[in-house]
C-alpha cells in the first residue's frame, strides 16, 4: 500500500537549492495532512552530510545515493537513484522542485514508474486522503486542477511559490544508503559545467527581479537595470524585444518564451506589457511599472505605477535601494 511522502532533495555543489527547501517544507505539510511520514532522497558525491539538514526541514527518512559517479547531474544516474528510493519507500506522494534538474528528471522517472506527473504546480490540496494540485496553463492565463488516477501522485513545484519552514535543529533522520547506483545502457553525461558569472542570482530564484524593455534604448544602458537589480540583491531580466535585438543574452528573457518568475517584487522598466511578457511575470507578488507612456498596458497589472522617464527614475531608485541596504 502506498504510504508516505517522498521528496527529491536536489543539491548542487554540496548544498541544497532554495527550491529543495521549498519542496521539503511542502512535503512536510502534505505528510502532516495525510498523517504520514516524509522521506527525502539526496543524490550526489560527498552529500551524505546533507541528511541532517533535510531532517531539520522535516524529513524523517533520508535516502542517500553518494558516489563519485554522481558528482555531476545525469538524467540516467539520478533517475536510477530516484526510482530506487521510490521502490523502497512506496510513497503515496512524490515531490521535486521544477528547477532545471527537476524538469529534466521528474518526467523521466514518472515515465519509468508509469505514473502521471503534474509539473510546475503552484498549489496542493489534500482532501479525503488524496492529493490534487493546481498548475498554471497557457502561461498563467488559466489554472488547471489536476487529479491523479493512480499512486503515487507526482508533482514538481514552481520555484519561489511555496514557503520554506523554519528549520528545527536536533532532528535526526533514519538514513538509508542507496549504495553505488549502477546504470547500464546508453547515457547522457555531463562533461563540463560552464558557470555564469559567480555570485549571480538566478532569475527564477530571485526575490526581486528588475527587467528592462525596449525603453532602455540600447545595450549600453542595460547596466542601469543590472545595477538596480544588484542594489536589491536581485536578478536582472529583459523583455523579448531586448533579447531579440541582441542587447542581452536569452537567459535573461522573461515571458512566454522565456522564464517564468514569481518574485516578491518585479520592477518593469520601459516594458509595454505585451501579453507574452505578462505571461512570465504576472504571478509576482508586487509589480512596479516604470514607463513614460501613461497608456502602457503594463500599468493595468502594476501595483505601483510610475509614469516617467526610466533614465531619471531608475538611477534614483538604485541610489535609494543602495542606501537602504548599507
Amino acid at each position: 500500500m502506498a504510504n508516505g511522502v517522498l521528496v527529491f532533495a536536489e543539491q548542487r555543489d554540496g548544498a541544497f537549492k532554495k527550491g529543495t527547501l521549498e519542496a521539503i517544507s511542502e512535503g512536510r505539510r502534505i505528510a502532516n495532512q495525510l498523517g504520514t511520514n516524509l522521506s527525502a532522497v539526496v543524490v550526489g558525491s560527498g552529500v551524505a552530510g546533507l541528511a541532517g539538514e533535510a531532517a531539520s526541514y522535516g524529513a524523517d527518512v533520508v535516502y542517500v545515493a553518494d558516489s563519485a559517479a554522481l558528482a555531476n547531474y545525469s538524467t540516467d544516474g539520478y533517475a536510477k537513484a530516484f526510482a530506487d528510493a521510490v521502490a523502497d519507500a512506496q510513497p503515496a506522494v512524490i515531490l521535486a522542485s521544477a528547477s532545471s534538474m527537476g524538469r529534466d528528471l521528474a518526467p523521466r522517472v514518472a515515465a519509468r514508474l508509469d505514473i502521471g506527473l503534474a509539473s510546475d504546480i503552484t498549489e496542493t490540496k489534500v482532501e479525503g486522503g488524496k492529493l490534487s494540485a493546481v498548475r498554471p496553463m497557457y502561461a498563467g492565463k488559466a489554472f488547471a486542477t489536476v487529479e491523479f488516477n493512480r499512486a503515487p501522485a507526482f508533482v514538481t513545484l514552481r520555484p519561489n511559490v511555496f514557503p520554506i519552514a523554519a528549520p528545527e535543529a536536533g532532528r535526526t533522520p533514519e538514513v538509508k544508503n542507496l549504495g553505488g547506483v549502477v546504470v547500464d545502457g546508453p547515457q547522457a553525461k555531463v562533461t563540463d559545467i560552464l558557470a555564469a558569472a559567480k555570485g549571480k542570482i538566478e532569475l527564477t530564484e530571485a526575490s526581486v527581479v528588475v527587467s528592462g524593455g525596449r525603453g532602455i534604448k540600447g545595450p549600453e544602458n542595460y547596466h542601469l537595470i543590472q545595477s538596480l537589480a544588484d542594489a536589491f540583491g536581485g536578478a536582472a531580466g529583459a523583455s523579448r524585444a531586448v533579447v531579440d535585438a541582441g542587447w542581452v543574452d536569452h537567459s535573461h528573457q522573461v515571458g512566454q518564451t522565456g522564464k517564468t518568475v514569481s518574485p516578491s517584487l518585479y520592477i518593469a522598466c520601459g516594458i509595454s506589457g505585451a501579453i507574452q511578457h505578462l505571461a512570465g511575470m504576472s504571478s509576482s507578488k508586487f509589480i512596479v511599472a516604470i514607463n513614460k507612456d501613461p497608456e502602457a498596458p503594463i500599468f493595468k497589472i502594476a501595483d505601483y505605477g510610475i509614469v516617467g522617464d526610466l533614465f531619471e527614475v531608475v538611477p534614483k531608485l538604485t541610489e535609494q535601494a543602495r542606501a537602504l541596504r548599507s
Binding site: K17, S100, P186, Q187, K189, V190, T191, I193, L194, S251
Partner: peptide, 14 residues
Amino acid sequence: EREIEGGIEVVEAP
C-alpha cells in the same frame, strides 16, 4: 550545451 540555473552544462550522449 544545456541551460541550467546560473550556467551551462556540456553534455555528451551517443
